[in-house]
Design a protein around this nucleic acid. Structure first.
Lengths: 242, 242
DNA sequence: TTGACTTATATGTCTAGACATATAATCGTA
DNA sequence: TACGATTATATGTCTAGACATATAAGTCAA
């Protein structure tokens, strides 16, 4: 026989405390601004030490569900900054995840001294060299996106000799320059004649534009503009809380 | 005189430990997959108790920077799901934050039994009543976005009598239905004649589309479609880490 | 070689205290 | 009444232990 008492497989105490409080907040039983019981009250209620309830409350605070104020207590935070997690996958991963065949084609690659426009786009001041890459991604041989990218060689010297005719620069960078920060700007344009031809859509058709500017520890790495046919591509962002 | 030794205002010990490790990860000194020193090693290095280093490591694990495995140790996580935080503010807040004057205009409001199309859009099966709202937001008297919304009255009965002629439904919902989950879909279209007229742009001009579907504890609340002139609006998403 | 069993070990959780510190509340004074 | 000093208190951090538990690694037999 097993040694199990009827305690069964209940989670650890601090997790139970955390879940209890979280449930009350999420159901609205404790609305924003509500003061959560003091630690010493929870200690009494759950019959445990203060460190245990402290751990539960600290995690809730780290998750921005509550706010802790010395001497005052802990309070349910009000619906904060409305934000969402936007998944922006590597294009190749995105396409293969859909079960479609990924295709890649290098349109152009140029190594040059940074022009004024390049420097502005990358947000760097000093003169230096850059690699400019233009390429196209396709799914099942249908154009999926065109990419227009600039890489700062001062930050990523090895990009000068990388072979981008086989591997897309995005994937290459992902493997060579981890841990970056980025800013995305999403907008819409209509296809000009060149874009229309590359994406095989009509001139004037809507396109979704993602401009991504990537850096690492205040060091510019790359700036990229991705153009997707607007009616065939969807960016999905899921958002929880607040 | 003050009692301060030259220790000055250094942060607490566990925060220093956490920052030390975080720095090594972010600079690449400890690449993905690298094994972080064992807790007992960090205890020796920092001369503190295990609970203190445990707190530092737990927070790093909660932030998804490291992965902890029993008996094996703690490891730097590799660049995970490429995701970004996308700020999607309440439109009124967004406009006033820009220092512009917010304007709102109710175009139409209808209370009706849910049609088949309504039910599909809201993802509900049972018949019920809905409120359909169409309205326009403007900044400095220039059209900023058109909104087309459906509210499920089964979830938000008070929406039946709310006065949406003064307050935008988004703001009203934000104050009456906190803590929701949502899914956003972003795409691009070109303006049809009606949209063009409402937004005061040319027919065929690009528009950014945000479809937002909101629920709470598996209960549908509202589905909304926002149309922005594509060349004047920008969605900015910032992304940090891996 | 493979599978089953044992063992060592790093993390996971918890305790019963301690002192530090920010600050809400109170009290005293101008 | 308004302002400054004092006090009470809830959280913040930390310790030196303890036992639990998952699991990598080693052991041994089929």
């Amino acid at each position: 026989m097993s040694l199990a008492t009827d305690a069964a497989d209940k989670p650890t105490l601090y997790k139970r405390i955390r879940a209890d409080i979280e449930r009350r907040i999420l159901t609205g039983e404790w609305p924003p601004g509500h003061r959560i019981p003091f630690e010493h009250e929870l200690v009494a209620r759950y019959g445990c030490s203060r460190m245990t309830v402290n751990k539960a409350l600290s995690e809730l605070a780290q998750a921005d569900l509550i706010e802790r104020r010395r001497r005052a207590g802990s309070f349910v935070r009000r619906p904060q900054h409305q934000s969402a997690v936007l998944k922006i996958a590597d294009i190749r991963a995105e396409i293969t995840a859909l079960g479609r065949t990924y295709g890649y084609e290098l349109i152009g690659r140029k190594l040059r001294a940074a022009t004024a426009a390049d420097r502005e786009r990358l947000g760097v001041k000093k003169a230096g060299k850059v690699v400019a890459i233009s390429c196209r991604h396709s799914a099942d041989n249908v154009p999926f996106a065109v990419e227009d990218r600039l890489i700062d060689l001062a930050s990523v010297p090895s990009a000068a000799t990388a072979d981008f005719s086989r591997e897309p620069p995005g994937s290459w960078l992902l493997h060579h320059v981890p841990w970056t920060e980025a800013e995305h700007t999403i907008s819409a344009i209509v296809a000009d004649d060149r874009t229309a031809e590359t994406l095989d859509i009509a001139i004037g058709a809507p396109c979704l534009v993602i401009d991504r500017y990537t850096w690492r520890s205040a060091r510019t790495i790359t700036a990229v503009r991705l153009l997707y046919p607007g009616d065939s591509h969807r960016l999905v962002a899921r958002f929880k809380g607040g």
